[in-house]
Structure formats: C-alpha cells, structure tokens
Amino acid sequence: MSQKEIAFTGRIIASLSHEIKNVLATIKESAGLMEDILSLRPETDAPHQARLVKAAGNIRKQVDRGVDVVMGLNRFAHSMDEPMAQIDLNELTAQMAFLMQRFAHKSAIGLSAAPYSEPLNIVTDPFRLEMLLAAALDVCLTRADKGSGLVIQPCRVEGRPAVWIGAAPDEPPDTLPPTVAFPEDLFALKGDLEHLQVNIYDCGSAGLHGVLILFK
C-alpha cells in the first residue's frame, strides 16, 4: 500500500473506532442506570430482580472489554497517521502483544510484553514496524510449543535499541552472538529491513530461543 492509502485506511478506522467508543459509552451509562434503579430498593422482591442486576453487570463488564479492544484498534489506526514518527518501544511492544493476543491464544501460547526499564524512543515508520513485528511474532508462535510462553520486550544490544521476541525463560542477549543468522522464515520481509533501518537475527543457533530485531 502507498503511504496515501495507509493514511486513508488509518483515518477511517480511527474515525469508526471513535464512534464505537460513543456507542459503548451510551450502553455503559444505560446499564449503569438500570443498576442504579434496581439498587434503589434492593430489599424488594421484584420479579427477576437478581437476574436483571446480573445482566446489567454483565453488560458493564463486556463494555469494559469492548473499550480495551477499541482502544487497541484506535492506537493501531493512529500508527498509520505518519510515515515517520517517534515511538516508544515499550508502548509499541505492549501494543503488539495486545494485537497478537488472539493469534497466540489460538496457538495455545501465552504472549506477554515486558517493558524496558526506561523509555526507548526511536524514529521509524510505525505501521511497517508493526507489520514486521507481527510477522516475527507469527514465526515465533509457529516455532513455540503449545502451552509455552512467549515474551516480546524492548532491550539494548551493544547499546542499540532492539526488540527481543523469545521463549521464556531465555533473556535477550547483551551482545550480538557471533553465530546469529537471518531467519529464513522471515525472508519475505527482507525488503522492509532497509526502510526500517533494522536487522533481524535468529538466535537459535546461539542456543537462545528467540528472534532479535536490532535497530541500526
């Protein structure tokens, strides 16, 4: 997609997600009002009162869940705003764990994000970096054993910002192992590496279960 097409897609998704938030806000207040009314005289034995209270509570919980989803969708849409933008890798990796949660769940793998101890800001193409990280996560999900855990975390390797996607309990390396190789199953993304100014390393040959995305 061209940048113009990406920006258009992002604008429409962002606009619709804002509208969904308005819908959820109205549902939440309506359910809340039902609960308020039902709690006015809790001692009464009105027909189905307990069931109505439970139903209103369920609506509120599902709205909260919907809000989390729509916030994630909204952040994703805004990643398409600009071809280059400053981002914090802590926020981006948390967002990626959120966006890929369903895929991880389908593979019966626990996916989580672990923040770096301080903000790790870089200037990059946020949308294409998300695509690259999603592809790397897909590969790692395919390789991981069912029931295992996968962590995506920003880190510094040889002083440079990086993102590590690895199987717990392996930690990202402090230095680049000499034997690392480019993961063959990510070959299709090789064209984006120059644009994103990153290298990808498969650390399996160095005895680590993970993929390292290192910024130049």
Partner: peptide, 10 residues
Amino acid sequence: EVFVRTLSER
C-alpha cells in the same frame, strides 16, 4: 443525546 440524557439521570 441518549448518552447525555442517561448520564444526567444518573
């Protein structure tokens, strides 16, 4: 409108 009326009622 529905949102703001409901909120007002609450």
